[in-house]
Nucleic acid binder design. Structure first.
Lengths: 209, 209, 209, 209
DNA sequence: CATGAATGAGGTTTCATTCAT
DNA sequence: TATGAATGAAACCTCATTCAT
């Protein structure tokens, strides 16, 4: 797969007939399946189409190229996570700092873990530095929500600055990724939520004092 | 690049002559250069050989296949980092927890940052799940050293368990990676050392109290 | 585009309703537009249909395949030219040789130049040796007309034989094509008419003396 | 085959080993063979390689893409023709106008006819307007030579201007092409030389009087 | 030991054409 | 009749790897 200019990564056409809608769904689901079962570099457009039960041509009716397909899958995953974080932030308004952070971390980890395998598979090509835009933008959504909710914490005299929030996000996301990728023992994965909450909370306290 | 059995990833022959040593050095350096200038999926064995000033055939005299070459490059980088961390641990024996963590974090970040571009380039394929062994093993070295030094901290009543150390490592490594990959603003990169030290220290304190 | 047997090149059905007539017109016009804007190898049936404002399916209701569409477009153009030449011949009856040739050449060049861009675009596939029949046949019409009118030239003792007429036609058509394709300077294109008349007339005189 | 930017049309590497030299020869010869036997749009790189007795990969070691291969074949043909014309001009210095033109026309037609089939096949893609540069440049060579020799004609009071020479060239080249493409009767092809000489000479005389 | 020409499986993508709706 | 989703053969091109020189 060759790097390509920023153009042409958008899905090609929006399905208008019902049949078509089912097709795009099948294709992106198939992409995930292949990613899981074969890995990124065994994922070929032909194989995806085959698994989806359509012909390659059909795949290319909806995605202008292989990258755009993968990008769509990644975007969908990231969107899920960001949405979960946003919802958690919304619900945690006015609670204590510890409760807030716990809520956010739980939401994040849950969202990642729900399809940990998919997340793991997606990391493989999210590393590709050619698409920082998408990842950045989704990270931004989470940070915005986080910043907003932290302003409502009663036990914070001065709300943390954007910098600290970015650092905490980095810790949350980066640590989770590392733990997932390292194939950490189940015990660790299980206690990731609480440990991560401890970590983030400790950092925030240390940082705002 | 095709997945391959775990055999055949070792460098093919140990260069005994000086000339041969120079050759392997040139090849792995060339691989890094290509990784930086062209990216992983434009890195071809022919290109690497060309940049190294040798023929493809020669490359294959020292590395049985492409993966083994990349693996060697990655191993070398990880080894540098682990060695730096170990040295820092050695030097920090008997100091306060804060000083220890600061020393380790600084050593780690410095080692990563010294060739941040290389680290970034290597992330591209370190994600490939087919080589978790190497990463795990090198991580283990750091954790061992960390565990040992923490036992000498005078201000720690009970030394942290392996679990906490693993978590802290994950935070250190994962957060650094995230910050590097996110293309974070220079200000953030610059203060990464101190923030990361704060974070790790706060976590350790929270965890051992 | 695959070569295909000589069958199936005729337009599929003669449009009887007004709406249908408009459709075929739109399609062939669209084909020309695409030819001009995208070139022959970017001309796809889907694109033509889209530009014509109909669906591919509709296109295939009127043309059995892509070749037949292109053929229709070419035939139409050639017919225009042949008709213009015939008309000029008709009008030039009884005039001097010089006047006749001038009239014919002018008519020919004018017809080509009127849509020089289209002519140029059509050359792209007229070269395809699989359709010589059409070109031959239309050339024949012109030559017939030319032969007839030359018989009425008062200043020709013996009318030129078919051979000379064919040669002159070849010169007229071939030279024009060359000049158009060479992207000759405007000055040359502008004086093409007179120079071509000179050339043809000189040849005829040299040949009949 | 997609249109492509002006880059990457140069042959990829010059063969250094003897074996390689034979290979490139075999490949371009094979391209001609396929062009003759299958036509332009049945000419695939795989087929050419197969006919040449090498693998596709080998073909792509010497030509960066399909176009460059065809271009090389075309360039070689055009070069032959231009060289023949230049040689004829050189030999005709100081002769009469009629003799000069006859020599040039004969040389040109002979060069084209020697491999009339190849010339015909090449016309198919020479029409492709994306490479006017090559054709123009070779035409220029012929015209330069023609201009030079015409200055030495003793029976020309004033040598013809560049314009007239260009027109005559257009007539020579265009007419020959038309005759070849039209699948003219053998009789015509046979007398093409003399008729074309007559035509060019008559034009030149008419033009310089 | 080094060279680099050769290999060829396999990847991505296009597009003329069909046919169920 | 019109639509446009689906098809799938087939094209171009890459690149890890081998092996004769």
């Amino acid at each position: 797969m060759r790097a390509r200019s920023r153009r042409g990564l958008e899905p090609r056409k929006t399905p208008v007939q019902a049949r078509a809608e089912a097709t795009v769904g099948a294709i992106s689901e198939a992409a995930i399946q292949i990613l899981l079962s074969h890995g990124l570099d065994r994922l070929t457009t032909t194989r995806v189409a085959e698994r989806a039960g359509v012909s390659v041509g059909t795949l290319y009716q909806y995605y202008p190229n292989k990258q755009s397909l993968l990008l769509a899958v990644l975007a969908s995953h990231l969107d899920n996570v960001a949405t979960a974080v946003e919802a958690a932030c919304e619900q945690a308004r006015g609670q204590s700092l510890a409760a807030m952070i716990s809520a956010v971390v739980n939401a994040f980890v849950d969202a990642k873990m729900e399809r940990a395998d998919v997340a793991l598979a997606l990391y493989q090509f999210a590393a590709d530095l050619r698409w920082p835009a998408l990842v950045k933008q989704v990270g931004q959504r989470s940070r915005k929500a986080l910043e907003a909710v932290l302003q409502t914490a009663p036990d914070l005299t001065s709300p943390p600055d954007a910098f600290a929030i970015e650092m905490m996000s980095a810790a949350m996301v980066g640590t989770t990724r590392y733990v997932l990728e390292a194939g950490a023992p189940p015990a660790m994965v299980r206690s990731l939520r609480s440990q991560l909450a401890t970590l983030c909370h400790a950092y925030m306290k240390a940082n705002t004092n």
